[in-house]
């Protein structure tokens, strides 16, 4: 799948085929995509634990349930617990100097090992590392970038996926031996969709002019109609929902799984 189509096809999928396992190779590809995400300091912000529902004891799944996340846990065959590792600043100076050695951070842009050791680390990065709020602010953004890659990789592999609020964090911490420095971010559910991949059509979005600007914040970015048409051909922009059959599709799938209609 081309990038534009993957980005355009991504939806939050909430109905999975519980009977169809996800191949381990696909999970590796998803993790690799996440591992290639943009990140400052070349740090390892994101940590993730993948577990398969079929391998979990019933009492473990029950421990994860709450009034708002229950059906999803029964339907998705794979759970990925995403965390921010608050220890990510550790080793930051060494990683930056490695990038200097590898001619990634170069003198042309002001970088040197001396700058990292004598100024950047003690004056900028160390104070951030010592400030929990700043560490968390930076970290959640960078984990978000990793998760965004993981979502698109899942779509590229023909899977459905959806992020859920991370509940029962204390129970998960004990069950999966999560280190104290990891902070829960999102629970990503993964599986083959029981609904069609289009999931009723592309979600409504406001036009580019509502959110993007050119030159100043009071000058909305105006779309070029030809570009818009080319993006439709490339499937970044797809038919909007709801499809005429969507209501019936949801009703039928809900009935199949005995869920409220």
């Amino acid at each position: 799948m081309e990038f534009k189509e993957a980005a355009g096809t991504r939806r939050s999928i909430r109905f999975f085929r519980p009977w169809q396992p996800v191949e381990r190779e696909k999970i590796q590809k998803i993790f690799e995509a996440a591992n290639r995400s943009s990140r400052s300091m070349n740090a390892d912000y994101a940590k993730a634990i993948v577990v398969r529902r079929s391998e979990l004891p019933a009492e473990t799944i029950d421990a994860l349930r709450n009034p708002t996340t229950t059906a999803s846990l029964d339907l998705a065959p794979v759970y990925i617990f995403w965390y921010l590792d608050m220890d990510y600043p550790n080793g930051g100076a060494d990683r930056l100097k490695e990038l200097v050695e590898n001619h990634v951070l170069t003198p042309s842009h002001g970088w040197s090992k001396a700058y990292v050791d004598e100024f950047l680390w003690p004056q900028v990065l160390k104070p951030i590392a010592d400030n929990q709020m700043a560490t968390m602010f930076m970290g959640t953004i960078e984990v978000g970038q990793a998760i965004a890659n993981a979502l698109l990789a899942a779509v590229d592999e023909g899977l459905g996926t959806c992020l859920h609020a991370f509940t029962a964090a204390d129970k998960v911490k004990d069950m999966f031996h999560v280190p104290d420095s990891w902070i829960p971010i999102w629970l990503q559910l993964l599986g083959y969709p029981a609904e069609e991949a289009a999931a009723g059509g592309q979600r409504p979005r406001r036009p580019l002019s509502a959110n993007f600007f050119e030159g100043s914040a009071d000058k909305p970015f105006e779309e070029d109609a030809e570009v818009t048409e080319s993006l439709k051909r490339d499937k970044l922009i797809q038919d909007p929902g709801p499809f005429p059959h969507r209501e019936m599709e949801v009703k039928m799938i809900s009935r199949m799984f005995g869920l409220p209609e």
Binding site: P18, W19, R65, P67, T68, T69, T70, A71, S72, D74, L75, F257, G258, L259, P260, E261
Partner: peptide, 19 residues
Amino acid sequence: KVRGFFVHNGIFMQGRAAI
């Protein structure tokens, strides 16, 4: 089926799926 009554009244809740 009972939860559906609450859901349509704005009370967000989920039950298990029948598999």
